[in-house]
């Protein structure tokens, strides 16, 4: 046997799990503290409310994570959410059956993702730029379509969905599970997921290994667009209107959730569970701050500070190895 130092066994994967557990611990800790500190936190009403709040960003964060893993970024998701509330509202009001309206709206999300892929792969634009461009233009297109007005959705069943629940858990949260499980399998147990990591790690190596790098990039942005459109549908159901200015700063919350959840903005490092927990940490902060009567402006400051702290410790952990 050789005397070469062989890197320590397994810790890598365990570390990942450990980090996930730490985050989960942080989330639970926040819940316990809030339950003790405020009478209204640990009520069924508040918890379901919290789950509803967190669900939308959680789904966005998963899509965002796919993109970030490839070393990209999708700044457009908030705008896509706003835009697709308009699309789904217009379709439903035009008399389309709900399933068809939702399907078409999702296809709009796919088309937006395709456009991003086209800009990055075929036009050679940096992801930051092309998604920044759609971020502003989509809001503009939405405003043009609605003349700046909100569109009330004339469909009770559509709106009832967001209020409903199954086994005491809101439908909206079930949607997170519906997205998370296939996403997890996709990211960690299929070759396409692996190609996302490989492109983010070393696109040249991936290409030389026969990985279709352009297609992988297309896939990441299409998934992000699709999930953003899905969130648009859910949001429209929740607020009962289509309005292109909805979903403001959602992209930043999604990115923040992803980063808090251990995703590296340099690409190639990320998971599905991390961003999910990250997004619920963020919504717990908002929820808790409201209950504790903390000035809402402080919530933004706290969120920023939390991002710095968590990413700093994550960096320490990575370097410490």
């Amino acid at each position: 046997m050789s005397t070469e130092a062989i890197p320590a066994e397994k810790p890598k994967r365990n570390f990942n799990a450990l980090f996930g557990l730490t985050l989960l611990g942080l989330l639970l800790l926040m819940w316990i503290v809030l339950a003790v500190a405020t009478p209204s936190f640990a009520t069924a009403l508040n918890i379901t409310n919290l789950l509803r709040q967190g669900s939308l960003i959680a789904i966005l964060a998963v899509g965002q994570t796919f993109v970030i893993i490839t070393g990209g970024i999708d700044l457009s998701v908030g705008a896509v959410v706003g835009f697709t509330t308009v699309v789904v509202a217009l379709l439903i009001n035009a008399g389309w059956p709900i399933w068809a309206a939702v399907l078409i709206t999702l296809l709009v999300g796919v088309a937006i993702g395709l456009f991003h892929g086209f800009g990055i792969v075929k036009m050679g634009l940096p992801p930051f730029i092309i998604t920044l461009a759609t971020m502003t233009s989509l809001r503009g297109i939405g405003l043009l379509m609605t003349n700046g007005n909100s569109i009330s959705i004339n469909s009770d069943p559509f709106q009832a969905f967001s209020r409903g629940s199954l086994f005491g858990i809101p439908y909206l949260f079930w949607m997170v599970i519906l997205v998370a499980i296939p996403s997890y399998i996709f990211l960690h147990h299929t070759r396409w997921g692996r190609y996302l990591f490989s492109v983010g790690s070393n696109a040249e190596a991936a290409r030389l290994s026969g990985v279709n790098v352009p297609r992988t990039i297309f896939m990441a942005y299409i998934l992000s667009g699709l999930l953003a459109a899905f969130v648009g549908v859910l949001l429209a159901s929740r607020i009962g209107i289509g309005n292109p200015t909805q979903g403001d700063t959602y992209e930043l919350q999604a990115i923040a959730s992803s980063v808090i959840g251990g995703t590296s903005l340099f690409g190639a490092i990320g998971s599905v569970h991390g961003p999910l927990i990250g997004s619920f940490i963020l919504s717990t902060i908002n929820n808790g701050a409201n209950l504790l009567n903390v000035n809402t402006f402080w919530q933004r400051v706290i969120t920023g500070a939390l991002i710095i702290v968590i990413v700093y410790f994550d960096g320490l952990r990575r370097r410490g190895k």
């Binding site: 147990h189 299929t190 070759r191 692996r194 070393n202 190596a205 290994s209």
Partner: peptide, 26 residues
């Protein structure tokens, strides 16, 4: 020219993964 974030095994089979029913046989 390999992916340093992936495992040795993942690199060995990059682009030619073994999978069954679409799932990687890690």
């Amino acid at each position: 020219v390999l992916c340093r974030h992936l495992t040795v095994a993942a690199n060995m089979f990059l682009g030619e993964e073994e999978s069954r029913f679409g799932l990687l046989q890690q």
